[in-house]
Design a binder for these strands. Structure first.
Lengths: 250, 250
DNA sequence: AGAATAGTGTCTCTAAGACAGTATATA
DNA sequence: TATATACTGTCTTAGAGACACTATTCT
């Protein structure tokens, strides 16, 4: 047998970038509802980085996989249950955590709208849903997170990340997580994990466009999604206009 | 400070799926040269899984990142240097290694042709380059690895992996690694990491098609690559026909 | 000259995108 | 009836793919 016991062992954590979609009344219009992309952060109550925001996370236990760690810690810390967990990277710089040698495995967690509503009513006082927005002006890329009066910025200029208001290397983690989410939406039909089982096409389109940064008319979007979804007999309710048919993922 | 010391700590390893391209004379034709996709495996000399094939890998040290572990172990075990390392997943099932609690971070390593030649001449006796081929008949997906008389198969039927001749969970790791490679080639221009600095378009096309499983005529491929590469003043040498212009990645 | 690959011009067809218009619910 | 969104039909255009042809080197 190899001598693996002679090697030092780090503490291993999972940090979770949990994304969800909320439905909110838009500001100016009389009746419009808008879908917004949200990211779940917690305000740290202890040193280091006390008072700063961080991804929820926790330590790996002996009898579980890191994906299970991510599921467990997300629920424990924020009262939220994810529908899908996807690994997006491993963070292992020796000095990334001032408490000691702690490496972290980043997990993307996707929540459908129902789960998001639950979380807002949960008693996890120090967990907050931040509005998520992304822009890329060709040169530097920027993520803006807002929740009430809190506004956090993550700027990626040529690979160098600046994110002062975030704890640890969580600025980079959030950036990587969103890029992974974007790729998965663009190329692997993961959007549906952010929706309930039955949904109108307009919701699907709004979420898709929010994440990918694209914009196109309803007719074209319909055509492209045609073979990925199936029409049901149900209709949206409580609308002030023509209700839309509900669809189901294939 | 949080009490993180009370948690048990696993050993942490990096396992490396190193892909490279070799140039070989084709079987039937008089002069044709063919580009082949290769994966580097080692034959295990110790228990557990003695005699079986495995990805090269080793343990994380206190003063390095896991990416550095991957780079170091790849060179130490096989004499090969990668040009690019990409994380493709974390493997943490508690029973994945009979020696104890060892989690592993999977890294894709890409080598250009020059580095591959070096490796074939290295003195890493137990490292072998396997021919890599992938097929997807709609139902199950299959990877076939061949090196001399050794032929290994990895079959993915509906998410369940069968790979008896491979050690640990390395069958699944190889599968995940290739899928990551495929995505990176299709969507993120990573092909160029498998080529030397100057290359003819035909090489680029062959490698691209080998990995993505596509096939198309040279005219179309040229058009699609036009804005990703730049023509140089150099030409391929030692050909028995019209030499092709060499290009450089943008 | 012959063989072999490099490289170009053009046609077709599909799908992306823009636009204009019709349909159907509630207030 | 007014309004707001759902949904459809069609035109244009860009690009994917197929094909035929020309170019250039070595043997």
């Amino acid at each position: 047998m190899e001598k693996y016991d002679e090697y030092d062992r780090p503490s291993v954590a999972a940090d979770i970038a949990a994304f969800g979609i909320s439905t909110e009344n838009s500001e100016n219009k009389r009746l419009g509802k808008v879908k917004k992309l949200k990211l779940l952060l917690i305000r740290r109550g202890a040193e280091p980085f006390s008072g700063k925001f961080a991804l929820p996370g926790g330590f790996l236990r002996k009898d579980e996989t890191i994906e299970q760690t991510a599921q467990r810690e997300l629920t424990e810390e924020t009262g939220v249950n994810g529908t899908k967990f996807i690994s997006f990277g491993i963070y292992s710089a020796p000095d990334r955590d001032p408490r000691g040698w702690i490496i972290s495995s980043g997990y993307l967690a996707l929540l459908n709208t129902v789960a998001l509503t639950t979380a807002e009513n949960s008693d996890a006082a120090q967990a907050f849903w931040f509005d998520f927005s992304y822009s890329d002006d060709g040169g530097s890329k920027k993520i803006t997170l807002t929740s009430g009066s809190d506004k956090l910025e993550i700027i990626n200029g040529n690979g160098y990340i600046s994110a002062n208001e975030l704890a640890f290397d969580h600025g980079r983690m959030i950036f990587d997580a969103f890029m992974k989410l974007r790729d998965e939406v663009l190329y692997h039909n993961i959007v549906f994990e952010l929706l309930p089982e039955l949904f109108p096409i307009s919701d699907l389109q709004q979420i898709h466009e929010t994440i990918t940064g694209t914009k196109e008319c309803a007719a074209n979007f319909r055509r492209k999604m045609k073979d990925k979804i199936t029409e049901t007999e149900f209709f949206e309710e409580t609308t002030a206009h023509r209700p839309s048919k509900l669809y189901r993922k294939n």
